[in-house]
């Protein structure tokens, strides 16, 4: 019966209480009281927003539940409201966004390594995060990063961005003439025909889309 009862869930903003529709109001109050009291050590001192879904409480009932939460959990309950139901697509987008921010796995943030010289043949740079090279990456050099790779110079070697599977990772270079580039599981190499290096700086960015690498001027 426990599993069918009231369920507490954590999400990006705080806590969600799922209340079965067929519950009686007195039972709801009782069960929340029990559960929160048992877990009071867990909640103690936390500042949380609580929403609920399922059973429709009246405004006065909401006040009563908030009071129970406040008193029994030891946490500071910032608000207690019914979860807003949004259109599915919007909700989906929003969810992805909030989870990113919450765990800070955004592919635009995180650890970064700066390399202030030319990365030469035989050098391998393995880094958990983003890599910025202030210089060239020569043929035979390898840069493997879990995040993005930016080369402020000519990229002639091999670069693997998003090496742990981040498909949103990108590779950027002032001159993109690599032996090979990889983003997550996608691999691309230069066309066989010689691309004339006319000496002009033409910054380009490589991203992955549907398992293929796309290079665009940027």
């Amino acid at each position: 019966m426990e599993t069918k009862g009231i369920v507490f869930k954590g999400n990006a903003e705080g806590l969600v209480i799922v209340i079965p529709e067929d519950y009686a109001y007195e039972d709801i109050l009782q069960e929340i009281d029990n559960k929160v009291s048992k877990a009071s050590r867990f909640f103690k001192g936390a500042k949380i927003k609580v929403t609920y879904r399922g059973y429709q409480l009246t405004p006065s009932q909401e006040q009563e539940v908030k009071k129970v939460l406040d008193e029994k959990s030891g946490a500071i309950i910032e608000s207690f409201t019914r979860e807003e139901v949004k259109t599915p697509t919007f909700q989906e987008n929003n969810r992805v966004k909030t989870i990113r921010n919450f765990f800070s796995t955004s592919s635009d943030e995180g650890n970064c390594k700066f390399i202030r010289n030319t990365v030469r043949n035989g050098t391998r740079i393995d880094f958990n995060g983003h890599v910025v090279v202030l210089g060239d990456v020569n043929p035979g050099a390898e840069i493997i990063a879990t995040g993005n790779v930016v080369v402020l110079g000519t990229l002639r070697g091999m670069v693997h961005a998003g090496a742990r599977g981040d498909k949103d990772a990108f590779i950027y270079a002032l001159k993109l003439l690599p032996t090979q580039i990889r983003i997550a599981e996608a691999i691309a190499r230069m066309p066989e025909e010689d691309i004339a290096d006319d000496g002009l700086v033409r910054p380009e960015m490589a991203t992955a889309k549907d398992g293929r690498i796309i290079v665009e001027q940027f």
């Binding site: 010289n117 030469r120 043949n121 035989g122 050098t123 043929p139």
Partner: peptide, 12 residues
């Protein structure tokens, strides 16, 4: 030239 590049890196 490839090998020279490697050597320069090792010298540095």
């Amino acid at each position: 030239v490839r090998d020279a590049d490697r050597i320069i890196g090792l010298l540095e």
